[in-house]
Amino acid sequence: MKIGLLTHSVNPRGGVVHSMELAHALFDAGHDVTLMAPATPGQQFFRPLRCHSALVPVASTPADMVAMVGSRIDAYVDHLSLLLEHTHFDVLHCHDGIGGNALATLQERGLIDGFVRTVHHLDNFVQPQLMAWQQRSVVQAQQVLCVSRLWRDVLQQEHGIAAIDVPNGVDAARYSPTPHAKDSALAQRLGIRSNGPVLLCVGGVEERKNTVRVLQAFIQLRAQMPDLQLVIAGGASLLDHSAYARTFQALLQASGCSRDVLLTGPLADADMPGLFRLADVVAMPSLSEGFGLVVLEALCSGVPVVASNIAPFTEYLQAGDCSWADPLDASSIARAIQQALADNDRQRIAASAARLAARFSWQRSAALHAGIYQNLTAREASPCL
């Protein structure tokens, strides 16, 4: 099949990683895949691609969210309108509201028969226009997919949409506990210390990631573990998290722990496997996730994990896979971190990683997607009775 996958950015966010890994797995299975994303001048995908790719030109990102999203929708519509004049896709599949709205517009214009939309999670935007665009991207899709039972149930109960649950995967060859010669150089370059435990959070400072409560937990732990270092990696996002970041910075300055908290900002993709190996525990007490790829990546790297005791984490993690935390309670997060550091059983972590990697592979995800695509194309080709 000829498949077009649309994602919202070239940056290493969860939905973009999902789109890229799915594109590679479909390509390796023999499909003709093109991964598309908006890109400002000079931008490229954060990781080299094996499949075809297309960068949709957009101007420098506007500060206003509605203007930014609207401009990217328009850019996709313009790009695909020209592309569809000489290229036919069996399936067009988007992973966010930007691509979804572009495809909905093309569908309304009669340029495509339908599209597939994966919902990783839904946001609660303050701006009505963003909420309207998000809703349109879902309800206009021919088929909606999601990455967890949690979001499948939300779509059914709150939107009346029968979505299909198609989970993520993890690249267990890329994320490995085997040390690499470059790990120590990475630690030195970033400023990660070796004289105490390292607590790693991935995703930057934002409310959904619960970073303020992680900092509160870290401040509590410093009383017993003065050598503990908090590393917060990543943060490339199209959304505006500045108000939450100011709250985080105010707490950090008042705590007196600034020298022990490292914010790396967005990192090169090649740094991520080594970064996991440098950590003593990875904390992901998120308030909301579509799936939580970081958990699988950390476990495959041999690192104990703290996760929120809520779905979707409770769907695929068993007792012993992680240390559970109440994401609304900083003290609970602190206790879970302590437990993870104290109960660092490498053999148990390896067993958890092996079981989860066998269950969640990109090859299996691609096969499930291909079956859904084939059913849709067969339905379209069937004559009306």
Rank of each mutant, 00 (worst) to 15 (best):
D90I: 08
L6S: 00
K182M: 15
Q220P: 02
V261L: 08
D345E: 15
V231Q: 07
L262R: 13
Q318Y: 06
V77W: 08
H120P: 03
T211K: 04
V119L: 15
A141H: 13
I161G: 00
P179Y: 06
G100F: 01
D64N: 07
D96A: 10
F313D: 06
R109C: 10
A311N: 12
S148H: 09
N375S: 12
I372V: 07
Q374C: 03
V198E: 06
A236H: 13
N11S: 15
P57R: 13
V91Q: 05
F45K: 13
P57L: 14
V16A: 09
H93N: 12
H86T: 11
L26W: 00
E158S: 13
T87D: 11
R152E: 09
W362Q: 07
F27E: 03
I192H: 06
R259C: 09
S352V: 12
G191A: 05
A307C: 00
S361E: 07
S242P: 00
L267E: 03
L287F: 14
R359P: 08
A223N: 15
L199T: 00
H241M: 07
C146D: 05
V138W: 01
T377A: 07
M284P: 01
N375D: 14
T247A: 10
E21Q: 11
L130R: 06
F291E: 05
V116I: 12
S176P: 10
I310E: 12
R355K: 09
C51G: 02
A254N: 15
V116Y: 08
R259K: 11
A353E: 04
V295P: 00
P128W: 02
C257G: 04
A25W: 06
L299M: 15
L80S: 03
A250S: 08
N195F: 09
A319W: 04
A104V: 03
T178S: 07
G290W: 05
T87G: 04
V58H: 10
P285S: 01
G203H: 12
V58W: 00
Q129S: 09
L287A: 11
T34I: 13
E207P: 02
S242W: 04
Q338W: 00
S352Q: 08
G4K: 09
H121P: 00
G97Y: 06
T247N: 03
H95L: 09
A340K: 01
Q224F: 03
D113A: 15
V69L: 08
D326Y: 06
G302I: 13
R152T: 14
L385Y: 08
C300F: 04
F89E: 11
A378L: 15
G99L: 14
D74E: 15
A181M: 08
L376Y: 11
E207L: 14
G191D: 02
S242T: 11
V119G: 14
T34N: 02
A342R: 07
M36V: 05
D345K: 11
A23S: 11
P273F: 03
V202K: 04
Q157I: 00
D329K: 05
V205P: 01
A357Q: 04
Q44C: 02
V138L: 09
W324L: 06
P41S: 03
L22K: 05
A132R: 04
S323H: 12
L385S: 13
L6T: 00
R152Q: 14
L22V: 12
G14V: 10
L200V: 11
A75E: 07
G265Q: 09
A354I: 06
